[in-house]
Design a binder for these strands. Sequence first.
DNA 1: CACGGGAGCTGGTCGGACCAGCTCACCGGC
DNA 2: GCCGGTGAGCTGGTCCGACCAGCTCCCGTG
Lengths: 252, 252
Amino acid sequence: MTLPQTRAFQKVVDYVEQAIAGGELAPGDRLPSERELVERFGIARSSVREALRVLESMELVRSQPRDPRGPLVLPASTGPIRRTLQMLTATNAVSLPELVQFRMVADAAANLMAATRRTDAQLLGLERNMARMRESIPLGYSAFSRLDLEFHELIAVAGGNTLVQLYGDVTRESVLTLIQQTILDAGDREALMRRSVRHHAAVYQAIADRDGRLASRLARETMYAYYADHVDEADRAIMADLVRECGGTVPS
Amino acid sequence: MTLPQTRAFQKVVDYVEQAIAGGELAPGDRLPSERELVERFGIARSSVREALRVLESMELVRSQPRDPRGPLVLPASTGPIRRTLQMLTATNAVSLPELVQFRMVADAAANLMAATRRTDAQLLGLERNMARMRESIPLGYSAFSRLDLEFHELIAVAGGNTLVQLYGDVTRESVLTLIQQTILDAGDREALMRRSVRHHAAVYQAIADRDGRLASRLARETMYAYYADHVDEADRAIMADLVRECGGTVPS
DNA sequence: CACGGGAGCTGGTCGGACCAGCTCACCGGC
DNA sequence: GCCGGTGAGCTGGTCCGACCAGCTCCCGTG
């Protein structure tokens, strides 16, 4: 009883996890109430509650106070991935060069896919984002960078690949938190923003023209131009390789 | 008291999360004991335990029974990312084409980086893996596929980018679980394995020669060859785009 | 100074208690 | 006969107290 190898709450967690993975529990379904789980699994309510907290932190389930229908089963979420990666970058388990290199690859893929799959409506969304971005230049870098993120996210959505979108989003956010201070300290922020707007316009045009390879190359060349100076020589060499991988060129 | 917007255990979770992110708590450190957390946060022990279960499920902390030193702070882990992605694929929130497309990009990047950064020792590791793989062909597909995964993981490690490595690993695992049955049902598994060995040999040679662009192209072309028949036309087109992105060619 | 044993903690689990308030079925009015 | 308001019966959130087995560390012993 006391040390049955697996802790009491784990039984409930395992059961619910497998039930969701196996399709027996679908989003919108309800788990039995805490007191009913107590009886079904033969464990104390505090143990059941621990299990529910774990399942909640995995975003598989949500308990709502005083809901007689029981805990709600949620649709599979990417939240834990985001949170975990943020923690990894916060503790320096993942470095800026790694993030930047990965972003080169992910953004390039997103651009490539978006060029093929984008709809006219999505193109319009990009256009509107660019307009707002131009207007935001006088408002300062933080407003601008939010729109910058949004631009890339719109492209990732248009690309239609959940993984490219998810990993790209997370990585962009992390890059921004790591680099923001550097940029704020740097000299001519407005010139930086203007350059950014030009780059976006070029990418937009490539996607509008359905020229995926160009859109991809632009992503990599732009990332190189932005970040090459912020990493050491070895990482810069890898970044240059990544630019060349898709036929791009790096300034010498 | 009853509905203070945020639940009692959340206070502890937030505190520990921020302390770890901010560097005040480092791996190897100890949290105060449960009973001490009770006093510090002014909440009941059951609430403290819920918090610890949540932190444990994020792999930030580990409680060990009867350890008077208190819960152990762990090094940042990628475990939750792996588990979450497995759940996403299990519930079909992420489809096979998405996984395959992402793998094309991630494996290509891993190969490219490995060609530049690999050490001779790592090259030797790849060689040994290939030898074991050849020997494993008669042992059946599951042993073989394990070695296949290992080959790619070795390359990813040699590439030296944590993100490429992590995402690649997770994605390869997921692809395997989704495709394994199909392959087991398919006709000539042995021919498939032999082809795989040849592909690995080619990638190995490119990495040995430090020809990153070739290694990258091989990754994409190989993935296309393996999986193009298992996806619909639209996704196949994207895969073809990805092959061409790095200058590769697709069979017509 | 080395070592062995016990005291004092620890985490794991259980049970019971109270609170505020959402739901739903039931009942009464229209 | 249909609709709408209401109260009973639950729910989840929190707390408290209790017991168990056993790891650690300290102190006293040799």
